[in-house]
């Protein structure tokens, strides 16, 4: 197969597609750039939707099903936009032993959504993680990227209520 010589046309004139194209170019548009390119899509847009997958498939000259198969294999890739705030509960063993299940239950009650879902008002996405590698601080909850160790349901409630009640 001939390697692609011209750069693929982005789905829109959104400048963020340039970042994605740059990633593909850095890897010579080779098929093994797929995961790195999906990372770059997610970093630029926050999620990887069909339109992005189509662009990546064209850019790397890969079959659509291979791109979809990889994107859905890896849990790190979000196929839908996330809420304004994210709340990630670590369910690693140490966190589990130290009560992460109760923390998660409390957050589910509070937000009314299950892990992997976003509240209908798009304010909060509730997520769970395998292990953040911060077991010494168990249980760990990451609020908008900030690691909170020894998380107590009370402190979390205050924070999440702040997100949901403020406009």
């Amino acid at each position: 197969m001939q390697p692609i010589s011209t750069k693929p046309t982005p789905p829109s004139d959104d400048k963020r597609w340039r970042i994605v194209t740059a990633t593909m170019r850095r890897h010579g548009f080779r098929p093994d750039a797929l995961i790195e390119t999906l990372h770059s899509v997610q970093e630029a847009f926050g999620y990887v939707d069909d339109e992005a997958m189509r662009f990546v498939a064209r850019g790397l000259q890969l079959p659509p099903s291979r791109v979809y198969g990889a994107a859905t294999f890896y849990n790190y890739f979000m196929l839908k936009p996330q809420g304004e705030h994210t709340c990630v509960v670590c369910l690693g063993t140490a966190c589990y032993i130290k009560g992460a299940a109760e923390v998660l239950e409390q957050l589910q009650l509070l937000t009314g959504v299950k892990p992997g879902e976003t509240t209908p008002d798009k304010k909060v996405s509730l997520l769970s993680a395998r292990c953040m590698g911060a077991c010494g601080l168990a249980p760990v909850v990451v609020l908008d990227g900030e690691v909170n160790g020894m998380a107590s349901p009370e402190a979390l409630t205050a924070k999440v209520e702040e997100w949901t009640h403020h406009d």
Binding site: P63, P64, Y68, G69
Partner: peptide
């Protein structure tokens, strides 16, 4: 053609066509 692949994983894994496009709408 590589129309088919496997999507998702584990007990949720399914064979899929294109971007889990309905088979009849597949481009490939």
């Amino acid at each position: 053609a590589h129309t088919w692949d496997v999507g998702a994983r584990g007990i949720e894994a399914r064979v899929i066509t294109d971007f889990r496009t309905p088979w009849g709408d597949s481009d490939t």
